[in-house]
Deep mutational scan, measured.
Amino acid sequence: MTYRVRIENADGEVVTIEISADELREKGLTLEELLPPNARIVEVEEVEP
C-alpha cells in the first residue's frame, strides 16, 4: 500500500509526498515522525501501488 501525503510546512507551503507502507515499516517510523519541525499533515490518501 502507498500513501499520498499532503504536508504543510512552517512557511505555509503545501507539498505532496508518496511513501509506501513497506518503507515506513523498514524505517520503523510513523508518518508523523517523518515530518520536519513545525510541519503538519493536511491530508493522507491511500493509493494503489
Rank of each mutant, 00 (worst) to 15 (best):
D22W: 13
I19K: 00
L31M: 07
I19T: 02
E8C: 11
E43F: 14
I19S: 00
P37Q: 08
E26N: 13
G28Y: 04
A39R: 04
L31Y: 03
P36E: 09
G28T: 03
N9K: 15
E8H: 04
V15T: 13
V42K: 05
V44E: 01
T2W: 15
L34S: 07
E33T: 06
D11F: 10
R4N: 03
R6E: 04
E23W: 15
T16H: 05
P49F: 14
N9A: 09
L35D: 00
T2L: 14
A39V: 15
G12F: 04
I41T: 02
L35I: 13
A39H: 14
K27V: 05
I7V: 09
E46K: 11
A39Y: 15
D22N: 12
G12W: 02
L24D: 00
E32I: 10
L29Y: 05
E13Q: 13
D11G: 09
T30F: 04
I7M: 08
R40W: 15
V5N: 00
T30W: 03
V14K: 08
L34C: 07
V14S: 08
K27T: 13
E48Q: 14
E46W: 10
E18Y: 15
D22A: 13
A21C: 05
K27P: 02
V14Y: 13
I41H: 03
P36F: 03
P37L: 08
L24Q: 02
G12P: 00
L31K: 00
I17F: 14
E33I: 05
A10T: 10
E32Q: 12
I41S: 02
M1R: 12
A10W: 13
N9I: 14
P37Y: 08
E26K: 09
E45V: 13
G28K: 08
I17A: 02
V42S: 02
S20C: 04
R25H: 11
E45G: 03
E48W: 15
E33P: 00
E46C: 07
E26M: 09
I19E: 00
V44L: 07
E33W: 04
L24R: 01
M1W: 12
P37R: 06
R40N: 13
A21L: 07
R4H: 06
I7R: 00
E46R: 13
L29S: 06
A39L: 09
I19R: 00
V47G: 04
R6L: 11
T2N: 10
K27Y: 05
E33C: 03
I17T: 02
E48L: 15
R25V: 11
I41Q: 02
G12S: 03
R25K: 11
T2K: 12
L35T: 04
I17C: 08
V14H: 11
E23Y: 14
L31G: 00
A10K: 09
E48R: 15
I19H: 01
I41R: 02
V47L: 12
S20M: 08
E45H: 09
V44S: 02
E46S: 09
A10P: 11
P37H: 10
S20D: 09
L29A: 09
N9P: 03
Y3I: 08
A39E: 04
T16I: 13
V5A: 02
E45M: 14
L35P: 01
T16A: 05
P36W: 05
Y3P: 00
E48C: 05
E46G: 06
V47Y: 11
V15P: 00
R4K: 08
R4V: 07
A10C: 09
R40I: 15
D22V: 10
T16G: 02
R4C: 02
Y3D: 00
E8T: 05
N9Q: 14
A21W: 09
V14Q: 11
I41C: 04
E26A: 10
S20F: 08
E48T: 14
N38T: 05
E33Y: 04
P36V: 03
L31F: 07
D11Y: 10
V42R: 02
D22Y: 10
P37N: 07
L29W: 07
R4F: 07
E23I: 09
M1Y: 11
A10H: 10
T2Q: 08
V44I: 15
V44W: 09
V42E: 04
M1A: 07
V47E: 03
A39K: 03
E26I: 11
N38A: 05
V44H: 01
R4D: 00
L35R: 01
A21I: 08
V44K: 02
I17K: 02
V14G: 05
T16D: 07
V44N: 01
I19Y: 06
N38V: 02
V42D: 02
P49E: 12
I19P: 00
L34K: 03
S20G: 07
E43A: 12
V5T: 01
L34W: 15
P36H: 04
R40T: 14
V14A: 06
R40H: 14
K27M: 07
I41A: 02
R6N: 03
R4G: 01
E33M: 11
E13F: 12
E46H: 10
S20W: 05
R25S: 10
R40V: 15
E18S: 08
N9V: 13
R25D: 07
R25F: 10
E45W: 13
V44T: 03
D11T: 09
N9W: 14
R4L: 08
E46A: 09
E18G: 02
V44A: 02
